[in-house]
């Protein structure tokens, strides 16, 4: 009996230790990034490594902004992520409405195509899309950056599950009251699925913010770069200036982390709901 009890305790200690170690491994890079971005160059490269900087070098951030057009990167990224989010939300709402509330010939076929396209990996089409954008003369333009992402089958499919949850009798009632489809969408459908729409908007904005491969392909002018491409180029150009690299990385990550901490429930719920249904 006594033996069993002590074994039980060791098991619990192991479990808590395991969770604690992985919690530290998960969070440490973020903390270290923020701290490292405030160190002096010497502090980032000493042995033993510095954990807490002796002086908070906020001037690192001024240097980052002076060495690369990060303000411009922020602006570009915000514009493209926001445009993609708003437009793809709009097209997804319209598409999902048609798929849920309207009856038409070929609906099953369209649904089948959408479902098949969900399985196509983005990397398989990104290079040919580059060719398309190039032949449209849209390299190094905002339009080129956003065009292939103005519709998202993924989000449309996701919204369908929200719209299906709203009783179809509501649509019939609205039609009898003389409302148009347009009015039904914006007065009833959208307000009633606010939760789903906010989730889609957040996920879309975050993935737009973190976009890398596509902007890498379609932009090569410095003033059209997005944040992550600018960051990658900066990491190469800044060479050994570790503290500046870390400060720049912090700049990239913090806005998303703030959004994440504010909306963590919606974001996590959105991801789980999404995936468990698929």
């Amino acid at each position: 009996m006594e033996h069993k009890k002590s074994k039980f305790r060791w098991g619990m200690i192991f479990i808590y230790l395991f969770i604690a170690i992985f919690a530290i491994i998960t969070v440490f890079p973020f903390i270290y990034m923020i701290l490292g971005g405030l160190m002096s160059y010497e502090e980032t490269t000493t042995i033993p490594p510095t954990l807490i900087p002796s002086h908070w070098h906020f001037d690192n951030y001024a240097k980052v902004f002076a060495q690369a057009p990060f303000a411009r990167y922020f602006f570009n990224t915000f514009i493209t992520a926001a445009t993609t989010t708003v437009v793809s939300l709009f097209t997804s709402i319209l598409g999902a409405f048609a798929m849920v509330n309207l009856k038409f010939k070929g609906k099953g076929f369209i649904q089948l195509i959408f479902l098949s396209l969900l399985m196509v990996p983005g990397e398989a089409i990104i290079f040919t899309n580059y060719t398309t954008i190039m032949s449209m003369n849209l390299l190094n333009t905002y339009l080129g950056l956003v065009l292939p992402f103005l519709v998202s089958i993924f989000y449309m499919y996701y919204l369908q599950s929200y719209f299906t949850a709203i009783s179809p009798t509501l649509y019939k009632a609205a039609m009898i009251d003389g409302a148009s489809d347009w009015e039904y969408i914006w007065r009833i459908l959208v307000p009633m699925s606010k939760g789903g729409l906010i989730t889609v908007a957040l996920l879309s904005f975050i993935s737009g913010w973190n976009a890398f491969l596509w902007p890498l392909l379609v932009t090569n002018e410095d003033n059209m770069r997005l944040l992550n491409n600018g960051l990658a180029a900066f990491a190469t150009d800044a060479g050994a200036q570790t503290q500046l690299q870390l400060a720049a990385a912090t700049l990239t990550v913090v806005p998303v982390l703030i959004i994440y901490f504010i909306f963590r429930k919606q974001i996590i719920r959105g991801v789980v709901r999404n995936e468990l249904k698929a």
Binding site: F22, A23, T26, V27, P29, F30, Y32, M33, G36, T44, T45, T46, I47, P49, I206, W209, N210, F212, L227, N228, L231, A232, A235, T242, Q245, L246, A248, A249, T250, T252, V253, V256, L257, I259, Y260, R264, I267, I268, V271
Partner: peptide, 25 residues
């Protein structure tokens, strides 16, 4: 806490990992 890496930029985290995995310091 555990979900944080999902929303953050791979490039930015790569910079931190490069720093942590550096063979010298």
């Amino acid at each position: 806490m555990f979900f944080m890496p999902y929303v953050t930029s791979t490039i930015a985290i790569g910079i931190v990992f490069r720093y942590i995995l550096n063979g010298k310091y």
